[in-house]
Amino acid sequence: MSMTRRIPWMKYASASNFYPLADRLVPIFMGLALVLAVIGLYLGFVVAPIDYQQGNSYRIMFIHVPAAWMSMFIYLLLAMYAIISLVWRVKMADIMAYSLAPTGAMFTFIALLTGALWGRPTWGTYWIWDARLTSELLLLFLYLGYMGLYSAIPDRQRASRAAAFLAIVGAVNVPIIYFSVIWWNTLHQGSSFSFSEGASMTDAMLYALLLMALACWAYTIAVVLRRAQALILERKKVALWASQISKK
């Protein structure tokens, strides 16, 4: 088809083309994630100097900030795949959306946990209801809701479409939730402490942060592609089973 030649990535919208590509990409991105993380951690822990205000605890930033970024990027990506699967009924888009969700939820959890562990030495408490932590917590609920709805519906077609719709509604709501939480925070004059990131960042810190963020991306790509492969095979199994039954 001429269509496939003009838009080469459309080729990978079909599972049979996607699968071998993923087979080649997964080891590359896994290796990349490992290398980037090692260099990033070296920069972050050995080269970057101690912060005169926060001491060493600021080094949690190198995992906390990338995890928080990933949690939001992955939700956006999930919503985009949800739109594609809902509007154009591309099966691979549904598989990708569903494959992204657990990893996104995991990064949200990591961001929350590392935020709490960073908060303890910095603010003297594990948890404060600050705008960022609170909206991150709500993001975790959005992920759980998506996965919960998907697995609660027995019919796969309906599950994928209902969950995709929910993801889109959630994505529309994310900025509203975020701004309402900020507003709430200013109303109640809660401690609006911000991790003083930009202020005293050295080059080493910046590169460490960047490398760790890239490592998280590479990890996400590898794991999500692997999960998508597993889903393709599992669905193929069901289809094969059904076709065998209908033959009899």
């Binding site: 995991m106 946990l113 562990l117 794991v223």
Partner: peptide, 24 residues
């Protein structure tokens, strides 16, 4: 020891690494 912040730092990185390895 990380200047007294070892627990928080290694707790953070340890859990993150653990979760990522398990998920992988």
């Amino acid at each position: 020891h990380m200047g007294g912040h070892g627990f928080y730092i290694w707790g953070s990185y340890g859990t993150a690494l653990f979760l990522m390895v398990i998920e992988g």
